[in-house]
Amino acid sequence: NRLGIIYEIQGMKAVVLTSEGEFLIIRRRKDMKVGQQVSFENEDIYNV
């Protein structure tokens, strides 16, 4: 599992900021809110 803070939500995608200072786009889940810490898997990351 990886951890990140939700920075922005766009439709079915969420932008998270990881503890390494990396911004990633992941698959959104219904319970996500901006500012929330979430765990996610590598499979949830969109390749940009």
Rank of each mutant, 00 (worst) to 15 (best):
M32T: 05
I45G: 05
S39Y: 12
G21P: 01
F23E: 03
L24Q: 05
N42L: 11
Q37I: 11
I9A: 02
L3D: 08
V38D: 00
D31L: 12
E20K: 08
I5E: 03
G11T: 05
F40L: 09
Q10E: 11
I5P: 00
G11S: 09
I6W: 00
Q10M: 14
L17T: 04
Y7I: 13
Q36H: 11
N47T: 11
I5C: 07
E20T: 14
N42Q: 10
V48K: 09
R2Y: 11
V34M: 10
Q36G: 03
F40K: 01
V38H: 04
I25C: 15
G35W: 06
L24N: 02
R29E: 07
D31W: 12
Y46W: 08
S19E: 08
G11P: 09
M12W: 15
M32N: 02
E22P: 02
E41H: 10
R28D: 02
D44P: 10
N1H: 12
N42D: 12
S19N: 12
V48W: 05
K33C: 08
L3M: 12
I25A: 09
R27V: 06
S19D: 10
E20R: 09
M32H: 14
L24M: 09
K33P: 01
Q10F: 15
M12E: 15
Q10N: 09
D44V: 02
I45M: 04
N42W: 13
M32F: 11
T18G: 03
K30W: 14
Y7K: 10
A14E: 00
L17F: 13
L24P: 00
I26L: 11
E20F: 09
L3F: 13
G35A: 05
F23H: 07
G4S: 02
F23P: 02
I5F: 10
D31Y: 15
V15I: 11
Q10H: 15
I26D: 00
R28V: 14
R28L: 15
K13P: 00
I26A: 01
V16D: 00
I5N: 03
S39E: 13
K13V: 07
V38R: 02
R2D: 02
N1K: 10
I26H: 01
S19L: 11
G11L: 09
V34G: 02
Y46E: 07
R2C: 10
R27Q: 04
V34N: 03
R27A: 05
V34C: 15
D31V: 06
E22M: 14
F40P: 02
Q37T: 12
I25S: 09
N42T: 10
Q10S: 15
Y46P: 05
F40E: 01
E41D: 11
G21C: 12
M32R: 01
V48G: 10
K33I: 08
V34E: 04
K13N: 09
Y46M: 11
K30S: 15
G4A: 06
Q36M: 14
R2K: 10
V38P: 00
F23T: 09
I25P: 03
M32L: 05
G35H: 06
R2H: 05
Q36V: 09
R2Q: 06
V48C: 15
L17A: 03
V34K: 12
Q36T: 08
I5V: 12
I25F: 12
K33F: 06
Q37H: 10
L3V: 12
I45C: 08
Y7A: 08
G4C: 04
G35R: 04
K13D: 04
V34S: 02
E22H: 12
